[in-house]
Amino acid sequence: MQIKILAFGIAKDIFGSANINVELRNNAKAEELKDLLEEKYPKLKQLASYMLAINNEYAQNDSPISITDEVAVIPPVSGG
């Protein structure tokens, strides 16, 4: 399945775009997506940390991703 990934902050700079499309197996876990993204964009590994969000909630490594989900890369936040 093809998933659109939203990117914010420094993740947007790393991807060179506010969103990218990634090919992922059905019901892949968040951890697999992280591995895949880090392989394609090694600079992600240099960040202090980053999370994935699925449908506006922080994801755990074992959270499943389905084709209708809104997925986002959340680099370290710095609001306020």
């Binding site: 902050g9 680099p75 370290p76 710095s78 609001g79």
Partner: peptide, 22 residues
């Protein structure tokens, strides 16, 4: 400051940096 997905970029005379990214 710890949990809300908002990001701050500091812009200097000679460059810019996303705060807390690295």
């Amino acid at each position: 400051k710890q949990t809300v997905p908002i990001w701050k970029k500091e812009i200097f005379e000679d460059g810019e940096v996303w705060v807390a990214a690295h």
